[in-house]
């Protein structure tokens, strides 16, 4: 590693303690030889110190009792009025589903989070099992979409379409049936030119309106899911969050339109 040349990326690595020990001396020499880079490094170091100083006081603040109560399970659950992100979700539901849906969601009957988790976990398990299979990820390939969706619809009891995700760079590989929580779910797999795979999992499971994202605590792919009474879908993959959001939303919209739910 003697002749390694440095770039301004190394300034970040050095600042964040990520520069390997044996490169530090050479990095220092590079800085000394490049006043511009040295100035940049000092500036970033100063900004960094300022950032760190901003919130030191927070660690010393007494913990609000509502947060302790949330952990001990004896606090008032889900105080909707204060939870702006839930309000935003509820408002979306209101538009989509009328007042009843809104009230059911906003009264915090639990937001069905256990059911959401269950569906998302199943979708992730299906994705991990089949998307990882290089040679035989699907039972029926995507060349005859009408046959594929007809078969999946018949077996799941849903009106299914295979979302067209080509404008997101994903082509349909095909689909298969997978077990759901006591029923049968449809799994449709897609791949992009780089070989990234995402799956679309659709089931008749679903109790309450909800949506969200879910990742196992151990990491791995992310599931973006929506569910409603008698309908649930999850889009699973390992993409950057923004891209995942865009693709998932596109797939979901097409699924809804295909099922005549919009």
């Amino acid at each position: 590693m003697n002749a390694r040349s440095f770039t301004d990326r190394d300034i970040h690595l050095a600042l964040d303690g990520e520069l390997p020990e044996d490169e530090r001396a050479a990095y220092q020499m590079w800085l000394e030889a490049n006043p511009d880079m040295k100035a940049k490094s000092l500036r970033y170091a100063a900004d960094n110190a300022a950032l760190r100083n901003l919130f030191v006081g927070v660690l010393e603040e007494p913990v609000p009792s509502r947060l302790e109560a949330a952990v001990n399970g004896d606090g008032p659950k889900r105080k909707e009025a204060a939870q702006w992100w839930r309000m935003a979700a509820a408002a979306t539901l209101l538009i989509a589903g009328g007042l009843a849906g809104y009230l059911a969601g906003a009264n915090g009957i639990g937001f069905g989070s256990d059911d959401d988790d269950r569906m998302a976990e199943l979708a992730i398990a299906a994705h991990q099992t089949f998307a990882a299979d290089k040679n035989r990820p699907v039972e029926v390939d995507g060349s005859d979409q009408a046959y594929l969706t007809g078969w999946l619809s018949k077996r799941t009891g849903l009106t299914l379409v295979a979302p067209d995700l080509t404008k997101n760079g994903f082509e349909l590989l095909g689909g298969r049936l997978v077990p759901a929580n006591g029923t049968t779910a449809a799994l449709m797999l897609y791949a992009d030119a780089e070989g990234n795979r995402i799956s679309v999992y659709v089931t008749t499971e679903g109790t309450e309106r909800s949506k969200g994202t879910y990742t196992l605590a151990s990491g791995g792919p992310e599931a973006v899911y929506w569910q409603d009474k008698g309908y649930g879908c999850a889009i699973v993959g390992t993409l950057p969050p923004e891209q995942m959001g865009v693709v998932a939303k596109d797939a979901y919209k097409q699924l809804l339109a295909g099922a005549g739910l919009t």
Binding site: R66, L67, A70, R78, A82, Q83
Partner: peptide
């Protein structure tokens, strides 16, 4: 703190 509370509640379940 709302975000923290929601995270804690989600963590608990």
């Amino acid at each position: 703190d709302d975000l923290v509370q929601d995270s804690l509640e989600r963590a608990l379940v």
